[in-house]
Design a protein around this nucleic acid. Structure first.
Lengths: 112, 112
DNA sequence: AATCGTTATATTTGTTTGGATATAACGAAA
DNA sequence: TTTCGTTATATCCAAACAAATATAACGATT
């Protein structure tokens, strides 16, 4: 029939969003660039939005997801903690599994 | 840990959204009330928004999902076709299955 | 033909969201 | 102590989105 199934998943902690696709993209970009401002540029989002996202991630996480430093060599930067890296990896895995699961479920609609 | 996983799924047909949670809520409300305007009131959304949603559903579906009548007894109304009822049922089932699947997947995060 | 509540549509208003801009604070290194 | 690029934050403006309002068209029923 040509129907496609799509999904967005996210993880909440106490009514606050911990991780979603946008946040995970940002975390990956931080990992690649070493700074929040460069990550924002690479994703074509404003620094403000990137900062707000990262702030909300760190506020809702049980342990720090990034370590942000101000000043010093290169002006500062941001990097993922081991916990942050684990979260990103787990989220990606769940997301991929979800896509596969839903692609299979879609057959129920295509039969109609 | 207290993390919760959430999801929104939707079905597209040729880049247009056919069904999502909002559209399915609307279709159910139409089924219950027999009219688009009453359905909108029951969902606390504007008639305009409800009409736009329903219009996009019917435009992207391969077969009519509702039959809308203007004028006549009671001023008119809207009702689901059998095809529409089948779609709603299938979507609900997929959605419930997805929640169950994700609740299980969440354990991967809770282990971290 | 007059009434009714509905579908269908346009227009205006308001609200929320995000972008652009500016600036302070910071600390290693020169 | 000056420089540098960053984090962190506030303010203003634009654009996107949703709500409110108004109105035409409709057709069975009276």
């Amino acid at each position: 029939m040509g129907y496609k199934i799509k999904s967005r998943i996210w993880i909440e902690s106490d009514e606050n969003v911990l991780l979603g696709e946008g946040r995970v993209h940002l975390l990956k970009a931080i990992q690649e660039t070493g700074s929040l401002s460069k990550a924002a540029k690479s994703l074509n989002i404003s620094y403000k939005k990137a900062w707000q996202l990262l702030d909300s991630v760190n506020k809702s996480a049980k342990k720090p997801v990034t370590i942000n430093s101000i000043g010093g060599k290169g002006g500062g930067g941001a990097e993922l903690t081991e916990y942050g890296k684990s979260l990103v990896k787990a989220f990606d895995e769940i997301n991929r599994n979800c896509w596969a699961f839903l692609d299979n479920e879609l057959k129920k609609i295509e039969k109609i």
